[in-house]
Structures are given as C-alpha cells and as structure tokens.
Amino acid sequence: MPGQRPFPGHLDPRLLRAFLAVAEELHFTRAAARLFVAQQSLSRDIRRLERELGAELFVRTTRQVTPTVDAERLLPYARRVLEAHDALLDAFARPGGEERPLLVDVNTPGLVSSRILDRARALAPDSELMARYETGLTGAAADLLAGRLDVSFGRFAGLDPSVRARLEQRLVRYEPMAVVLPEDHHLAALDAVPLAALSGETVYAGAGNPRTLEWTDLAHHLFEGRGIKLASPAPVAVGPEEFRRIMAKWRTPVLAVVEFPAMPGSVSRPLIDPVPLSPVSLVWRKGLVHPGIDALVRASTELASEEEWLLSPRNGWIPATDALIFMPRT
C-alpha cells in the first residue's frame, strides 16, 4: 500500500539483545560492557535495528540516552521474543541442564588461536571447549554455517561477503607474517627477509586448497607488484615429516605467520619492509549463544591488551580490503 512502511521478514535476536541492554542501561558504554562488545559495534547494531524497523529508538546527546515512543512500544515485544528464544535454547540443552560442548577450530597447535582457547578455558572452567585442528577459514566457514562447528579463527575479510553477512567476528590480532625456507636457502642467513628480496622467487601460499582461499587471496594482494610469483596448486603437505620431504624436494619458500611451528629441515624468517600483517579474527555463527563464546571474546580481549596484538607497526601492511573492515576511518 502507498506510504506503508516495509517490515523485515527476520530480526536477528542479537539486535534485540543490543536494544534491550541500551533500553535498560540508558547508557551505551555500560550496555556494551554488559554484552562484552565494543561500543562502536553496539551503536552499529542499534542503527541497523532502527533501519530494519524504520523507527528511531533512542535520542542520544552527550549527557543522556532517552528512549523514544517507538522504543517504549518495542520493549515488551523484545523481552517476550528473547524470553522465547532463551526458552527454545533451554529446551534443546543437554539433559540435566548441562551445556553442550563448544567445538573450536584452532587450526594448528601453538598459534594465537590456541593461546586464546587456553585462556578461555581458564576463564570458563565449567564450560567444555573442545579443540579441532583443521586449516583454513574458508573451509571452516562452511562448517560454521552448517552447524558442524561453532568457532574458528582466520582472515575474515577473505570470505565471500554473503558468507560474512551470516557470521559474527571479533578482530584479535594483526599477526606479522613470515617466510619458511629450506635451511640452506640463500635467504636463510638473514635474521629477517625484506619483501624485495623475494622478487623473482616462487612462494607457496595454499593455491589449489579450497579450504584456505582467504590465505591465497592475502598472498595475491601481498605479491602483486613485487615480482613474487605464487606457486602453482599442489597437494597440502600434512605433518612435519611430509613437510620436510616436500621442502627438500621442491625447495619452494612457504608464506606463513611468525608463530608457525618449527618444521624439520627449514627455518622461518619474519618479513619486513613493509611488515605484512595477517588480520586474525575470532569467528562464529550469528545468533549462536554460549558461555564459551563469551569466554573466548574475553580471552582475546585480555591477550590483545596485554600483548598489544592490535597495534600495527609504523611500517605495517594489510590489504586494502581488510583495511576497509578493520581500520578506523579518519
């Protein structure tokens, strides 16, 4: 009908939780702390809810937050919807009220993701956070959306936009990148390898592996215009001994991160001039509620603060696609 406001066919419960927190706290900072999210993320969710409803919900000034008439009208509906949502989750909880385990893909032991998982387990000892070790956020994202996996880590900007729209993410680290070389490679004698020194080299970055498309895409951005060739698709070397054999046979440098575990017959050297960074995010399915996720978010926030994981070096580099998502606009 002319003039009729379109109403969305679906409202994400997360948006209603954001609204309820602000409506009850009447303060965005306190509401964000209550939800364990950044204030910027909370404001973004409120704006999205306002767009979807076609109504202004809060009048914000520097001193106070005041709910509008539409907010007062929405409040009882939001409470009933969230109560029903929580009741549904309780109905499918494990017998006796026991939480179901949370399945977390940490990629490889010893990486940033493993450290976050260890901290989260300490923060939530009553929750069962089970680790899975498989590489690639692209592959993990399919499992997340299908409900076969709960949480993963990786380069969020490298996912298809239609997939990103169905996932939540929290940036946890700008991770410096490295190159893994045969022990007797001419660049292995350097303490750090300038990117210019890789000009003319062919470097492996997972090409052909459908589970790690986001990593290969990162390599494309990094190698472009620097004379570095991307190695042709090849089967993935699984396990230290197979990695050693392939490295000895083909002698192809491998793009990695600085915390990549040591492999026999090879050395890892950080890349510099500029310092390429791999933005690592904690990623989970939208609408998934579990105490283990709260613990993972808190753990990543604590570690990022303690070890300055989100500080980019002066000469740091990330792809423009990632900067659009993560870097604040000035």
Rank of each mutant, 00 (worst) to 15 (best):
M1G: 15
G9R: 15
L15E: 11
L16D: 02
R17Y: 04
F19Y: 13
F19A: 00
L20R: 14
L20W: 02
E24S: 09
H27R: 01
H27I: 00
F28L: 11
I46D: 08
R48W: 11
G54Y: 12
A55I: 07
F58H: 10
F58G: 05
T66K: 14
T68P: 06
A78D: 05
R79A: 07
R80S: 12
V81K: 05
L89M: 08
D90I: 01
F92Q: 15
P95T: 02
E99L: 10
L102Q: 13
N107A: 13
T108Y: 11
P109N: 04
L111W: 03
R121P: 07
E128T: 11
L145Y: 08
R148D: 13
V151Y: 01
F156S: 00
V163T: 13
Q169L: 07
M177A: 12
A178Y: 07
H185K: 12
A189R: 15
P194H: 07
L198R: 09
L198I: 12
L198P: 01
A207N: 11
G208K: 06
P210I: 06
W215Q: 06
L218H: 15
L218T: 12
A219T: 12
G225W: 02
G227A: 09
K229C: 11
S232E: 15
A234H: 13
A237Q: 03
R245M: 08
W250L: 14
W250R: 11
R251P: 03
P253F: 10
P261I: 00
A262R: 14
V267H: 03
R269N: 01
P276D: 02
L277T: 12
S281Q: 05
R285I: 03
H290A: 05
H290V: 06
R298F: 00
G316L: 03
W317Q: 05
P319H: 07
D322I: 12
R329H: 13
T330A: 13
